[in-house]
Amino acid sequence: MIEFRSVTKEFPDGTLAVDDFSLTVPSHRTTVLVGSSGSGKTTLLRMINRMVDPTSGTIEIDGVSVASLEPVKLRRSIGYVMQNSGLLPHRTVVDNVATVPLLRGVPRRTARADALRLLDTVGLDRAIADRYPSQLSGGQQQRVGVARGLAVDPNILLMDEPFGAVDPIVRAELQQELIRLQHELGKTVVFVTHDIDEAFLLGDQIAILREGGRIAQLGTPAEILANPADDFVASFVGADRGKRALHVESQDGSDVLVDSDGRPAGVLVGQRSGAGPSGGARSDVPHIVPTEGPPR
């Protein structure tokens, strides 16, 4: 569990990136910080592994303040994946993945063997192990980045817009891959993005941020969609328009969900007239079967 307690960060140039931010990030879940640029989301992420130190307030990991930990040691215990992979261009894929274990003193052979296994884990062919990053596609580079993040088997994985620089099709692939991985590994993931669709897709808990790291709304995707806290959130998630503003239309006896452009988004299945589906956070959202349409 990661806890932000009244965290404030003012940069030397006077920018107030984060103002009195508090949040609990539950273990083994994916928490997404979503907001546009200037919302302080990356600053928040980087405060967890002390790439940035807060001006005031504390951040605790399982009850231990990160300020009391040595930054280098802390970073080696946390996985970090960033937008442009950040791989070392002069080292091969397998050496990149093994970077941190080698720094920690793991014997070379063990580290390489582990790294090769990690390539399998992230869905990469071992044949690319001896290539250099510049010889890989953007999607492959990001997978290597994820593998490096997992190399020390961290409990926490920080992801800073990891799929922001790849094309939409590859991005969708990588997102599915992350969902699968998270299903297997159950890490505590903190994920930063400006893409609300990505947030809804990946997040168990979502914090929508306004300027200065103020939380506009915190909740599950369903909670946020069902009850946007204010106009800002409603407009940010697009609840008032497009694919999110669905309404029911009857079509040959079954109920079809139609978006605001009049395009069908799916059909409503299950007990519509009954007492409502049994509990759970998502109970107030109808179960939608998507129609085949353009990928969103």
């Binding site: 790439m51 280098v72 040691k73 960033m82 992979s85 950040g86 070392l88 970077t99 720094l103 993040g149």
Partner: peptide
């Protein structure tokens, strides 16, 4: 970004100088 990443994965400043 390469240096930033090296720092983020836990290289010390000296290691960044030496290895990157």
């Amino acid at each position: 970004a390469t240096i930033d990443a090296a720092r983020a994965v836990g290289m010390t400043e000296l290691q960044i100088v030496r290895h990157v």
